[in-house]
Write a protein that binds this DNA or RNA. Structure first.
Length: 216
DNA sequence: ACATTAAGTGATT
DNA sequence: AATCACTTAATGT
């Protein structure tokens, strides 16, 4: 029987080639915990303390932020296999409560790394520092683009970007979601999403089915 | 077969 | 682009 550590080690080498240093891989394998979440599960909610940094092995996750006032939720981005949650770094290192909510979109497997190692590895391992900085930078750029599209673009191009981002995160051209779920993510009405999707379908960009949208 | 939920449509603001 | 007031279609029990 293989131990969890050896399993983590082989997963790391396969899915996180950026984390190159052998010694680092071994430490992750030693302290990391393999965790599984079913689709729809809220992994981390607002206000909860972040005690782990996740390395996503399989599946995908939706990261959203709650509006200052009540109720309204706003989608920030999706995370897929091979990625990590940039927001969790700062939360961890400053031991702040989570400002975001993360929810499994698909059944998801991740390696959870306890917070106490995050900081010490920064100075100890070059490839850890690079990994953290690079994912931070990438997500920040993506976030700014989302911001731009909200400010300057119409719903149609926002919807297109949403579909592409989600398809990229799930690593599949087919998206499993209802129109109302998408509408909620985009802060739009369900009817608007339905109509725009219909238009995309007639343009031959997507194919629609109940609870699923396939990008062509 | 019936109830429930998802999706399509037109009119109105 | 939102909301309303439906209709139609697909699915679950």
């Amino acid at each position: 029987m293989i131990t969890e550590s050896t399993e983590i080690l082989s997963i790391l080498q396969k899915k996180f080639p950026q984390i190159a240093e052998k010694a680092l891989q071994e430490e992750i394998a030693a302290v990391g915990k393999l965790m599984h979440f079913h689709a729809g599960t809220v992994i981390m909610d607002y206000q909860s303390y972040v005690r782990m940094v996740p390395l996503i092995v399989e599946g995908s996750i939706k990261v959203s932020r709650e509006d200052d006032q009540e109720g309204k939720e706003m989608l920030l981005y999706f995370l897929g296999a091979g990625e990590t949650c940039s927001m969790s770094f700062t939360c961890c290192m400053m031991s702040k409560k989570s400002a975001i909510r993360t929810e499994a979109v698909e059944d998801t497997t991740l390696i959870g790394i306890p917070i106490q190692y995050i900081d010490q590895w920064m100075s100890k391992f070059q490839s850890w520092k690079n990994f953290i900085m690079l994912s931070y930078d990438l997500k920040m750029i993506e976030l700014v683009k989302v911001l731009d599209s909200i400010a300057f673009e119409g719903m149609d191009s926002r919807l297109k970007k949403y579909l592409f981002a989600r398809s990229k995160a799930t690593n599949s051209p087919t998206i499993e979601a209802t129109h109302s779920e998408i509408a909620a993510d985009l802060n739009a009405s369900r009817e608007a999403v339905s109509r725009l999707l219909k238009k995309l379908e007639s343009l031959g960009i997507v194919q629609l089915g109940r609870n699923q949208i396939t990008i062509l």
